[in-house]
Nucleic acid binder design. Structure first.
Lengths: 305, 305
DNA sequence: ATATTGAGTTTAATAATTAAAAACATATGA
DNA sequence: TCATATGTTTTTAATTATTAAACTCAATAT
């Protein structure tokens, strides 16, 4: 059966066929296979797939299929298995590849993006890229060009400033909400654990300063976790994305920056543990302002590198 | 030249051809048409289009085209014009139609959306809908289903609550920023004008209560205008969308609601004009809380209507 | 009767096709 | 001669066509 054009992959068929081989392996020659519906249920595919798989088993002389009789003629061997088509990147992996590309190569704002080329570059169907870029356009990171194609918008200094300010808005709100939580809320314990982890890392910062970025994310996630709001969450996803990628590529003064950040975090944690809202906000603002400056500097350095 | 399949509309060709007819009409029989590049520049299309249009003019015996000689043989008549294909909805119109449909028919959360059907319903190419839904998925309004298709998520009570809380977060931030602005900033004048407009509408509210929704939007836009941040702006676009559509369809107690809202706005404006931050925030919170309740009630009423 | 099958229909994703643009090569006339 | 126009080819991207997969329901066998 030679196919000329395959409008969509038959990956579902392939994996179902292989699972059907497994089922046959567990049976004896001469046994009857279950009903089409039973197989479909068991393998979580439609009967259409089950029937095409049975057809192939029949034409490969592994079963004799006549009406509702599906008798195993011989046991399947390794060579009968179909090779699964390598699956494309998932939506998340695409996002990762895309941002890594942007930041690693400092792709400038205004760059025109074309789906066909990106599709080859990332090994992802054009369709997925269309969808991905359409999503980014809602976040204001890319823009549709008048007659086809997309244009990269973000990653200018203005972008970084506005993102940082938005981050500050969200995190200060989180801090305010956090301070209203009762003493038996799990956040207080989490903060105490985080405090200890910060102290631990501080004592070995000279060697282990690389470990800070993980702790940083853990800390900010904890703060933000008290806000249960899908819009805030969605915004934080973007913020995490951008800040993380920048930290990943900006290695200047990493030890000094991280050591200073640990102290800022500690002051912030202490203020919250003492339920001192004024001091907490001040500490938060101080840390977030410095974060913003770091992001901005990293952008500047990359621009003239 | 019979065409079997047209992969994309030749609307650009049609309008260019018609404009070329206009150019011919302004010429005398025997005159020479300008060069291809000149025509392309003048009509803002590629030479490819100019050349296909010239080809049609030639085969329709309106010009004789040989090399760089393009002589007008006879003047074009009305019947020569090509009828332009009716253009599909723009992205904004699609958004409008989509939300109107959702809210007018109270499409419940969890409804499965399929692009083919929506494409027929809204008269928009499937492609555009894919893109539109991909954008909404970034806003958390729809979700891709495991094996194709989309699923409507939003418009539950939780959605409304979270949206309202997010709105409050953003608007309180705007108020705080607004109160730090210097006395000669244009916002103060805008607020004074708005105050007057509220008073005016209040005096004729019994007859003109419908006019409030416009004033409401104007007021909130003014407040938010002091925040120059693309993320905040993007979020406000969504908020405006949802709140506006709800007001549009929820007509219960409209007079009472709007009269009360005007008073709340006035108290809020006065507090800001007096630079009283505590009173301003209190007024804002009061108004935004009531707005939230209204949105929630409107959802409940529609659900059981 | 009831579960199962066969056939036909519908849906949705991707490949193929085509309009349009851009790039490149060649020719022409001031 | 050289700037400009034309002819040709290549690339890009939007839409249609096609196909895999799912669904539906009447017919059939146990």
């Amino acid at each position: 059966m030679l196919r000329y054009a395959m409008a969509r992959t038959d990956e579902r068929f392939r994996s179902a066929y292989n699972r059907l081989l497994d089922i046959c392996s567990d049976m004896e020659v001469g046994d009857q296979l279950p009903a089409e519906t039973a197989l479909a249920d068991r393998m979580d595919v439609s009967r259409t797939i089950v029937r095409s798989a049975l057809q192939k088993l029949d034409s490969d002389k592994l079963i004799r299929w006549e009406g509702r009789s599906k008798m195993l003629i011989r046991k399947p061997q390794a060579e009968h298995r179909l090779v699964p088509a390598e699956s494309a990147l998932s939506a998340e992996e695409l996002e990762h590849s895309f941002f890594e590309w942007i930041l690693r190569f400092d792709v400038p704002a205004g760059t025109s993006l074309n789906v066909a080329q990106l599709s080859r570059q990332f090994g992802v169907p054009v369709h997925n890229l269309q969808e991905f870029l359409a999503g980014l356009s809602r976040l204001g990171l890319v823009e549709r060009r008048p007659r086809g194609g997309w244009s990269l918008l973000g990653f200018t200094s203005e972008f970084a400033i506005e993102l940082s300010e938005f981050r500050m808005l969200l995190e200060l709100n989180a801090v305010r909400q956090l301070l209203t939580l009762p003493a038996d809320h799990e956040i207080w314990n989490r903060l105490k654990v985080l405090r200890r982890e910060h102290e631990d890392l501080k004592s070995v910062i000279a060697e282990r300063y690389h470990d800070f970025s993980l702790l940083d994310e853990k800390f900010h996630s904890a703060i933000n976790s008290v806000v249960r709001n899908r819009f805030v969450l969605e915004a934080q996803k973007l913020i995490k994305l951008i800040f993380n990628y920048h930290y990943m590529w900006d290695k200047r003064d990493e030890l000094e920056r991280n050591a200073a950040a640990i102290d800022e975090h500690l002051e912030w944690i202490d203020a919250m543990l003492e339920r001192d809202s004024e001091r907490s906000e001040a500490a938060a603002i101080k840390h977030l302002r410095r974060s913003k400056e770091t992001l901005l500097q990293s952008l500047r350095v990359h621009k003239f590198a």
